[in-house]
Design a protein around this nucleic acid. Structure first.
Lengths: 341, 341
DNA sequence: TATCGTTATGTTATCGGTAACATGAACTTA
DNA sequence: TAAGTTCATGTTACCGATAACATAACGATA
């Protein structure tokens, strides 16, 4: 391995002078600089980041911890985070928590020893708080994206769940739906709680009753939803929902799949709308009506805020950035069967 | 920051003893071990990886460099690579090359200074060779997944492009197609070359002529293919293809989108088949006939081979692993219009 | 009990950089 | 031309861990 000493010897200067050249110290004569730069090139010298980190206490590594990289929503978020990180000279350590607080905690433990300078996190649930305390204790800043964990006062970039849910409900109501079901994620996850609360409020605003039987909790990940959907569509006709609101793209896709297994047509028999676009085929066969959250922007903005924290360029008080969604109406929503009689 | 010295002082031993406890050296008395472990717990000590790397020359960081994480094929590959890496105690640095050899080279430069122990790479093209030479020069092992770059003798995990292409062509021919177009990726990428070669051979085997006008090169990334597809479908009737083979999932999806813009129905007017599944909605509306490559396995196996290299547990000679694909016939392929008259 | 062999622990030097201080050379200025 | 400045460069020590060697402690053996 070529070290700063090899370069120094070759250029006939002290290692410190080489270090100064590398770090663009102003007090270096043009002549020495050129001499050292030539030696660096000749030896193909690359500074050792580990040695540097040992002194500077900074690794220029950041981590992005997400629940599921196979979800296109998080893929786009990752792109945004990576772009911003590279732009600012940081490298990205990727971690999947698989929606498990345990795996997440394990991963954070690992990050602590890797000496990451900061963590961008879509927490698996409120159980994340304990692991996050360790980060705080070590002075490693972190920022929430998409979701938050209760009990941690930090920057966050989140979607406007209240507004988005309200608009999705209004869209369905305007088509004539009066009984809308919500297939939600686990209530241990902030966005699931927020979407449920917003759902109740939206129903109230539309002067529709809230029926707990029409709210079902499942996972945000790929799953077979046949049982859950059957439960909804086999309710008595007057209790049966005419539309299903899915709390994320996977639930949306799997709801449609389950409906098909149950021989129900979308949107003829029942309408479906969901949060987040199931890319990469959002439109080749326009199907799901969705609330498309700005995933890339969330990642980008989240990383930006994290970098500001790491570089102590942010105010002490935690900041919250709320990003709006676009409602994209496609073919999975239509007037309910009854109104078409 | 809590160091090994703090622990040593607290436990009333020398730093070396603490180091021995951490590294499970056998020659440590039970009594001392417990004492030191207590101090570690009490102080919440975490070893500093940077300092360790300085001596060991190993960072336990590996990098995965892929052309495009927004492609579900690479997402699944990433999952596989990450799972295997974590299993073996390595952490994953993620890099997107965006199909650009320049970005890739820049990224590899960055990796060199981060001191990664190895690189798993789906090269952006043959232009990658130069950057890879630098890795070789520094003794950083790398392994190709999915694609290879000419001029680098290293382990590789690739799909069986010849066989897969042959089977896709046979599927189309068996439906009655005689004129099949290939919308391929850039010929600077190995899989595009292999698929083209296999395509020619398959046509020959099926005793069909090869028409260069029916082979078009485009990008593997999201793109508007309307011009390209128009070029194909506006050929004279006797020269016009009745089926299009797309060299990856994005090209497949975008071909169908383009056909729709041109008011052509799939599969009634023209059939489409492609490599790689456009997840996450492969089946909720069965559409694309695809050759599904085992992406997860590619990532997993590739990482495994890389780890073997890094830990010098592999034979010197480069190894090649070829993984077969599944042909999944869905609704985008059918008999050509003529045969249905 | 003197000697030896283990086993457990400590000391010193080092990995590759850089901060902090020291020094030397060149240039002013009186 | 001697003293004071300024600028360029070198020296020394240290970041946090550990390899290599040194030594202390202990029990076994004659």
């Amino acid at each position: 391995m070529v070290t700063i000493y090899d370069v120094a010897k070759k250029a006939n200067v002290s290692p410190m002078t080489v270090s100064r050249v590398i770090n663009r110290s102003p007090s270096i004569s043009e002549k020495t600089r050129l001499k050292v730069e030539a030696a660096i090139r000749e030896l193909d010298y690359i500074p050792n980041k580990q040695a540097r980190s040992l002194i500077s206490k900074a690794t220029r590594l950041v981590s992005l911890v997400i629940p599921d990289i196979s979800n296109p929503f998080f893929t786009r978020l990752t792109r945004g985070a990576e772009d911003k990180a590279l732009e600012a000279g940081y490298q990205l350590l990727l971690g999947n928590s698989d929606e498990s607080a345990d795996k997440e905690a394990q991963y954070i433990e690992l990050l602590l020893s890797s000496g990451v300078d900061g963590v961008l996190l879509a927490p698996a649930g409120d159980g994340s708080a304990a692991a996050l305390n360790k980060l705080t204790k070590r002075g490693v800043p972190f920022v929430f994206v998409d979701r938050i964990a209760e009990g941690a006062a930090c920057d966050r970039v989140i979607g406007d769940n209240a507004d988005t849910t309200g608009r999705l409900v209004r869209h369905l109501v305007s088509l004539g739906h009066r009984r809308i079901a919500l297939v939600n994620g686990p209530s241990s996850i902030s966005i699931a709680r927020e979407r449920l609360a917003a759902f109740r409020e939206a129903l109230q605003r539309e002067e529709l009753g809230f029926d707990p039987a029409l709210v079902i909790e499942t996972h945000f990940k790929q799953d077979n939803l046949e049982d859950i959907v059957r439960q909804l569509v086999t309710l008595a006709p007057e209790a049966r929902p005419t539309a299903i609101l899915a709390a994320n793209n996977f639930i949306g896709v799997n709801t449609i799949r389950a409906l098909r297994q149950l021989d129900l047509a979308v949107p003829e028999d029942i309408s479906v709308a969901c949060f987040d676009d199931p890319e990469p085929i959002p439109e080749y066969n326009p199907f799901l009506t969705v609330a498309a959250q700005p995933a890339y922007e969330m990642g980008y903005k989240g990383m930006q805020m994290l970098i500001e924290r790491m570089e102590r360029a942010a105010p002490d008080a935690p900041r919250t950035v709320v990003l709006a969604s676009d409602i994209i109406v496609r073919r999975s929503t239509a007037a309910p069967p009854s109104s078409r009689l």
